[in-house]
Design a binder for these strands. Structure first.
Ligand SMILES: [Zn+2]
Ligand SMILES: [Zn+2]
Ligand SMILES: [Zn+2]
Ligand SMILES: [Zn+2]
Length: 413
DNA sequence: TTTAACGTGTAG
DNA sequence: CTACACGTTAAA
């Protein structure tokens, strides 16, 4: 309560370190980190997105502390220090046969947050639900079962959630869109369950040299395993496709940002991010539109757009510039709020100053008063000059020493 | 240590 | 719901 998130005011010790949230069942969830291998991870900071501009490195205030939007990891992994809750060991997928890998790697439950080797579970009879979108993530057998029986306290923001995944340029967004688009067939009539072809082998294995230190020289970038390993390899735990709730569907309707929750997806026909020029020759159907960068164009409604875009994919086109507009608004808004914030801060600062100076002032005043007793009183003008605040936008290059030590303010460092 | 940025509370 | 701020963690 008190002052927490918002202004930079002060923050005693509230919030933020509560990865548990689910009390009872949830042991503190471990923070994931970037995989360093995905397309996003391999990029370099764009320097232009919202978060980049916030970085001190790019002249920003460094308040957000978020990754460059273009670099939001597509497959965040468990920390290298993660171990099985039961046996205490790390992932062991590299030490077993292909078919057993799954049972020996660490799996984090998106509901109770427990990290275990599936093989270490006692109850091997229940089945867990693998989250195909996030490496080493599933809904453990226990939770899955409880879910079926009704209670499931899903987390508001599950593992791997990125709060800015809806911003333009984010690969996560692409991911989402693809996912959302994949369904929504022309069969609006039947709203029933979506059943798809049992062809689950349509995507590559999301395995990577993830959270475990050891690895073999296998799997290069974009491995496309088309091996059939499921049936045999999953004695107990099968990758079930559990479609979200109806809610999900509704949400989707209007564009949403669902946390990675039960994205246990459906390996449906999905042709998403590609990066291998190998198999799967035809994907022209899914334009990636990597281009974007700065928006120097402004008019759009009247440009004589002769050729492209229209034919190729009108919806995409429209979509994009709608987004552009939105982005613009956002920028505007935040500029405004920035200004306000500045003002507020200044005011506060002044207040503090006056408080600090109050004594002196009072003394001064007193002095003056008594001194001049009844001479002539001239208003003492002690205002608006002692302020610098911080809104550099540019590196001052001087008089920075004080700030360096005054870390109390920002907390960072 | 330093640096990056995750995940969360919460004001709008 | 979104966007912000920020403690805190993961990694180098
Ligand atoms: Zn950026
Ligand atoms: Zn990555
Ligand atoms: Zn274990
Ligand atoms: Zn669980």
């Amino acid at each position: 309560h008190r002052a927490v998130g918002r202004p930079k005011g002060k923050l005693g010790a509230s919030a933020a370190v509560k990865l548990a949230a689910n009390r009872a069942t949830a042991g503190a969830r471990r923070r994931r980190t970037r995989c360093r291998k995905c397309e996003a991870c391999l990029r370099t900071e764009c320097g232009e997105c919202h978060f980049c501009r916030d970085m001190k490195k790019f002249g920003g205030p460094g308040r957000m502390k978020q990754s460059c939007i273009m670099r939001q990891c597509i497959a965040p992994v468990l920390p290298h220090t993660a171990v099985c809750l039961i046996c205490g060991e790390a992932g062991k997928e590299d030490t077993v046969e292909e078919e057993e890998k799954f049972n020996f790697m660490l799996m984090e439950c998106s509901i109770c947050n427990e990290i275990v080797h599936p093989s270490c579970l006692k109850v091997q009879d229940a089945e867990g639900v693998v989250n195909e979108e996030l490496p080493n993530c599933w809904e453990c057998p226990k939770c899955n079962h409880e879910g079926k029986t009704g209670k499931v306290y899903k987390q508001k923001r599950g593992p791997g959630f990125k709060y800015a995944s809806n911003l333009p340029g984010s690969l996560l967004k692409e991911q989402r869109l693809n996912r959302d688009l994949k369904d929504s067939p022309e069969t609006p009539g039947k709203k029933g369950e979506r059943e798809e072809n049992p062809k689950r082998r349509s995507e590559e294995h999301p395995r990577k040299g993830d959270g475990i230190p050891r690895r073999k020289s296998e799997e290069g970038p974009g491995v496309r395993k088309r091996r059939d390993v499921d049936r045999l390899s999953e004695p107990i735990v099968r990758k079930k496709l559990k479609i979200g709730k109806e809610e999900k569907l509704m949400r989707k309707k209007k564009r949403s940002l669902l946390p990675n929750e039960d994205h246990c997806t459906p390996i449906k026909s999905l042709r998403n991010i590609k990066q291998e020029p190998e198999d799967d020759p035809q994907l022209g159907s899914v334009p990636l539109t990597p281009q974007r960068a700065k928006e120097s164009d402004q008019s759009r409604s009247s440009s004589p757009r002769a050729g492209p875009s229209s034919e190729t994919d009108p919806s995409k086109d429209k979509e994009r510039d709608k987004e552009r507009d939105k982005e613009k608004d956002r920028e505007k808004d935040r500029e405004r709020s920035e200004r306000q914030r500045e003002k507020r801060k200044k005011r506060l600062h002044n207040k503090e100053l006056s408080k600090e100076l109050s004594k002196e002032l009072n003394l001064e005043i007193h002095k003056t008063e008594s001194s001049l007793a009844n001479e002539n009183q001239q208003p003492i003008k002690t205002e608006g000059d002692v302020e610098k605040a911080e809104k550099p936008k540019r590196q001052p290059a001087s008089g920075d020493k004080l700030h360096r030590l005054g870390k109390g303010l920002n907390g960072t460092v």
